[in-house]
Amino acid sequence: MRRVPDRSPRNMLQFANPTRFMTFSARLQPWLWGSAALVLAVGLYFALVASPVDYQQGQTVRIMYVHVPAAWLAMFCYTTIAISSLGTLVWRHPLADVSARAAAPIGAAFTFLALLTGSLWGKPMWGTWWVWDARLTSVLVLFLLYLGLMALWRAFDDPARAARPGAILALVGFINVPIIKFSVDWWNTLHQPASVFRLDGPTIDMSMLVPLLIMALGFTLLFLALHVAAMRNEIMRRRVRALRVRTASQLSLAEATAS
């Protein structure tokens, strides 16, 4: 009788164990790095050369092609952490905590980049580096959340003990993501309202929307490549820790037997 492979979600989850992830990700990585480099190169050509200058903002509009993808990734990365945290709390999946921990520094870097490029765009256009409006402040809170998560994880020697409190903090902090997204609609902000993801369609001209979407895709591929690499490092770090703990306990047992 022919054996039918079990493709139930429960069985598919077993494919995501750390050892199988290391094998699978080693094959995936070159494709991720290569496609990220290619899409970013095309995106940069459009952003810096082929796209027109804005009739009001002039060359300054080119900051949009790095600022907006960085801001999208800041939220996408936190959403990845929140979904991974759900995996830690509900299914206690070993890769879920690894995924959350690996994503946090990358998310913090992109959030910082969104704040920095936003400031560099704000000074010539608004006449100020910073204003305490709802969008800017909620993104700053997101950056502080990333730092808080990383500090919490580092406060524990054993990553397994840090997983649960980290996951709870990450999920509580997720409330900030819709606040960031809708802050420009709920409050009167200096920051402009949404111009790409709108119910009535984008309000940007196609000559600027296409380069923006290419850059956003390139940034997303770059994040995926960085995240997979950081997850591999985290798995190896845990293996190093486990081996060191095992060696230390064998040594202390040998000393106790000898004395």
Binding site: L48, Q56, Q57, G58, Q59, T60, R62, I63, V66, H67, L116, T117, L120, W121, K123, P124
Partner: peptide, 12 residues
């Protein structure tokens, strides 16, 4: 209106 310095700083 150019402000190229801000663009260069953002990309750098």
């Amino acid at each position: 209106m150019s402000h190229m310095g801000f663009v260069v700083a953002a990309y750098s």
